[in-house]
Simulated scan of single mutants.
Amino acid sequence: MSVEMLYEKDVTTNYLDGKTIAFIGYGAQGHAQANNLRDSGYDVIIGVRPGKSFDAAKRDGFEVYSVAEATKQADHVQVLTPDENQAEIYKAEIAPNLKPGASLGFSHGFNVYYGEIVPPKDSDVIMMAPKGPGNLCRRTYKEGFGVPALYGYWQDASGHAEDKSKEFAKGNGAARAGLLKTTFKEETDEDLFGEQNVLMGGVTALIETGFNVLTEAGYSPQLAYFEVEHEMKLICDQIYEGGFVKMYRDCSNTSEYGSYVQGPKVIGPESKKAMEQGLKAIQDGSFAKEFMADYHDGFKKLYAERARVENSPLQKIGDELRAKMLFVNDADKFSTPES
């Protein structure tokens, strides 16, 4: 089912004008969205716990409060803390202090969709999910553009929840690039599926397996790194710019032919079946239960896997080579700080 792309000219209502918008969290997305909304003329305050984010928001000129106090003042509360502790913060500090009829906003449907957060019946519950990281949202906004975003709602108490979600996206600069309507279920299912099976889990497993196959066969780990990890960015850039057609056009006939022959063997029926099982675990909530159980257990599995990645031969070889590539290190100078 296709959806219509909306742009700035299509967003004409003003239900958020004159309202106090509290951002709960001032990390990557919180920093970007709060600054973008303020620059678009909205009344923005920040609610965070003491620490680096609190200090950063102060330096950026915001009025900064505790989560509870910011919630008390707000007509709209945008919740942008990490998925794993969002429900705890909501139940302890947001829910008891939410104004009657105040709206709630999210940039990912995880906690509402899986029932970790149950909003009051008199609140509009909306979504504005940028399709890009916070630093890119902020940078492109300042350049006069933006990144596309998804909009939608979970609960429409006022009759204007969808309008609010579009207005919020427009204030973030996303309507300059394009808005697509979604639901909390659709956004959560697709976002988790993409991360786990393609963008992160799939890509990293593919790279690491390719590296292991080459090095175990006796090939140089340095050359293997360049072949399976370094060049991945170059191929992805071509796909981003013009799809598979541009990528194949810019590569050799040999590589194109070989990809048609070998690609379906590597990502074949077994891989598809694993993806389908992964999607089912997202849809039935079993992945969310597993993730939250690991969080409540001190993230033992997450931290063990993180340590494995940090100490893997691929990471160590890559670190050594990247340290000698000035163009990789210089790229950091052009990124916007996340908080």
Rank of each mutant, 00 (worst) to 15 (best):
I235N: 09
A169S: 13
F299A: 15
R306T: 10
Q33H: 15
Y153I: 01
A224D: 02
I117T: 10
A22C: 15
V261G: 00
D10M: 03
M232C: 12
E305Q: 07
M232E: 03
A102H: 07
N253K: 11
Q222K: 14
F299G: 06
S312M: 09
A169Q: 01
Y248R: 13
D39K: 15
V3D: 03
Y219E: 04
K333M: 00
M5K: 11
Y26N: 06
A28G: 10
M128Y: 13
A304N: 14
K272H: 12
V228A: 04
Y141N: 01
Q86S: 15
Q262E: 02
N35E: 08
E227H: 12
L214W: 11
F54D: 05
Y26H: 07
M127P: 02
K164T: 06
A281P: 02
G132D: 07
T20R: 14
M325Y: 04
Y113F: 13
A175V: 10
G202Y: 00
V44D: 04
Y90K: 13
V213L: 15
A70T: 12
N35D: 04
E88P: 01
D17P: 00
L302I: 14
D55P: 10
I117M: 11
N135G: 03
E190V: 14
K164S: 01
S40C: 12
T182P: 00
A205N: 03
F145S: 13
I207L: 04
L16F: 02
Y153M: 01
A175W: 00
F145R: 11
A274H: 13
V112S: 05
P120C: 02
P96G: 07
E88H: 04
M5V: 09
N97T: 13
V198K: 02
F244R: 05
T13H: 10
P50M: 08
S158H: 04
M232R: 03
P96A: 04
L314K: 08
I24Q: 07
C251L: 12
Y42H: 09
E93S: 13
D297N: 13
P148S: 14
Q196I: 02
T209S: 09
A95V: 01
I207C: 08
Y303L: 15
L321A: 02
Y113H: 15
D250F: 03
T204R: 06
A57C: 04
S255C: 10
S103E: 06
N97V: 14
F23M: 14
Y90Q: 12
Y113N: 08
A149W: 00
G109V: 06
K170I: 01
S40I: 12
R249T: 10
Y42N: 03
L321W: 08
G159D: 03
E190A: 14
F168A: 10
L223F: 12
M292F: 04
F184C: 05
I207W: 03
K280D: 10
S40M: 13
Y90F: 14
G218C: 07
G132Y: 05
R49V: 07
N36V: 07
G201P: 03
A22M: 15
M275E: 06
K316P: 00
V261K: 07
N197M: 14
K166E: 07
P50N: 07
P82E: 14
S220P: 09
T20E: 02
A22D: 12
D75L: 15
A288I: 06
D83C: 09
E216M: 11
P133W: 01
A129R: 13
N212V: 07
A34F: 12
K265Q: 09
A32Y: 11
Y7F: 15
S158F: 05
V328E: 10
T20I: 15
K324F: 09
Y257T: 11
G152L: 05
